[in-house]
């Protein structure tokens, strides 16, 4: 059985769902962050898959590589997001002595 686009899409969907569940249900701030990163990965995988399996025959390489470029941007944003989120986690921990997202119920600290 050859590997087609659908395989990658379903794989991405499953990875995304696992990430979504983690982001929703994990108690620990770092756990939530791990879920979000996993979702990013799923989306990236889909992007790359789409760029590998083009829809139109007359797409140039540069056009098909838009997916890759987008992935690069996503990774950049993910890195920035991770840095800020972990800084936030440190700050919350310093002030509230917990990184349990359930207990971060105030909009201030």
């Amino acid at each position: 059985m050859a590997i087609e686009l659908e395989h990658y899409l379903i794989l991405g969907a499953l990875l995304f769902s696992i990430g979504l569940y983690m982001a929703l249900a994990k108690r620990n701030f770092v756990g939530v962050l791990m879920g979000i990163e996993m979702m990013f990965n799923a989306v990236n995988l889909t992007f790359i898959a789409f760029s590998r399996f083009p829809r139109f025959a007359d797409m140039t390489d540069a056009e098909r590589l838009s997916g890759h470029v987008f992935v690069i941007f996503v990774i950049t944003v993910a890195a920035a997001e991770a840095a800020v989120a972990l800084a936030l986690a440190m700050l919350v921990y310093r002030n509230r002595e917990t990184i349990d997202v359930d207990r971060m119920d105030l909009l201030k600290w």
Partner: peptide
């Protein structure tokens, strides 16, 4: 803080 347990959002999450 090193516990990776779930909150009560587990069922809706799943």
């Amino acid at each position: 803080g090193r516990n990776n347990a779930e909150t009560f959002f587990r069922i809706p999450g799943i």
